[in-house]
């Protein structure tokens, strides 16, 4: 029990700090974004699991030989008023911390979900009144805005991709199709679920380096994944041109601020570093374009397989350490 808790604590610290920093600096995720995405998910899940697990195992050490036995005696103390004298101050502290952290994570996940759903519903209501259906399909709407904007609003069967008039005017049909395929890839691959989970993870533990790095990496990786889908039907040149036109016309650029027109939009303060999702998404656009301009081969098969095995181990080892001794004992 004692060594288990130390091992889990070391794992939790490694996954909270050095590992995500190394991974966020690595170059290979741009070559195999899907593999990198799996690794980030494994890091986040294993990090949470080992963090809670380490505290739980440490706290239960005096009252059980393994996690399951410990939990059973703990339940006896909580529900049947069995004596708690075996538990020292630090054990109770660790157990309370584990319980609080678990509750905090679950609560933040649910709260973030509720907030996102509410914002999306409001957005959809307004779109229904303001945007008109496009000729490109039932899931596409056009909104009367001069600057080139494209985004998708997930929502199951009611998911829509929204294009602005400015975008339709600025892009050739082939470029427009590339943008649409890119956005539909987000919807088809359910990227919003990843963004939700990692946004909640960051919201819950904002001071932990891993949560910010993971969220930034994930938002950048989903763009690369969607670009790869768009590249199946569009040429690289088409996609690059579409990205460049939208980016240079979007409100980061001075002239686009004018194109936006109207005092109504003056409260949108674009172009400030730090605002607008900040440096993270700026880096995303840069790395997307450089990835398209000078493509690197994907990681070799054995390396990808090794990363997948590492993902599995990350999840399997803490789980096994927590559960297996109880099942054997």
């Amino acid at each position: 029990m004692f060594w288990t808790s130390w091992f889990l604590a070391v794992l939790a610290i490694a996954l909270a700090w050095p590992v995500p920093i190394l991974l966020s600096r690595a170059q290979w995720p741009a070559r195999s974004p899907f593999t990198a995405m799996l690794l980030w998910q494994a890091i986040a899940l294993a990090g949470g699991l080992s963090m809670i697990g380490a505290m739980l195992v440490y706290g239960l050490e005096p009252i059980g030989d393994n996690l399951l036995a410990g939990l059973k005696s703990l339940a006896g103390m909580v529900f049947n008023n069995a004596p708690t004298t075996e538990l020292g101050f630090w054990h109770i502290f660790a157990l309370s911390a584990a319980a609080l952290l678990t509750a905090h994570l679950v609560f933040t996940l649910l709260l973030t979900f509720y907030k996102i759903q509410r914002q999306r519903r409001r957005h959809r209501e307004l779109l229904a009144l303001l945007a008109s259906p496009s000729a490109d399909g039932p899931r596409t709407m056009v909104i009367n805005v001069d600057s080139p904007v494209a985004y998708c609003l997930p929502g199951g069967a009611r998911s829509v991709t929204v294009l602005s008039d400015g975008l339709m005017a600025a892009l050739e049909p082939a470029e427009l199709r590339a943008v649409l395929n890119h956005e539909n890839a987000h919807l088809d691959q359910r990227h919003h679920l990843l963004l939700w989970a990692f946004a909640a993870w960051r919201q819950a533990l904002p001071w932990l380096p891993t949560t910010r790095l993971a969220q930034e990496a994930v938002s950048s990786l989903i763009e690369m994944l969607a670009d790869d889908v768009a590249l199946k039907t569009a040429s690289k040149a088409t996609l690059i041109k579409a990205i460049a036109i939208v980016a240079s016309g979007s409100p980061g650029a001075p002239d686009a601020r004018m194109a936006f027109g109207g005092p109504e939009l003056s409260d949108v303060e674009p172009g400030q570093p730090g605002a607008l999702g900040g440096a993270g998404s700026a880096r995303t656009t840069a790395s997307r374009v450089s990835r398209l301009l000078s493509p690197q081969p994907p990681l070799p098969e054995p390396v990808r397989a090794a990363v997948l095995v590492a993902c599995l181990l990350l999840l399997a080892v803490p789980t096994a350490l927590l559960i297996v001794p109880g099942l054997l004992g």
Binding site: I116, H123, H192, A247, S250, T285
Partner: peptide, 16 residues
């Protein structure tokens, strides 16, 4: 970013 996904995130002036 979790509510909706934009085709292009923000770009800095130099990048544009």
């Amino acid at each position: 970013e979790a509510v909706l996904a934009r085709f292009i995130g923000s770009v800095t002036d130099t990048e544009a």
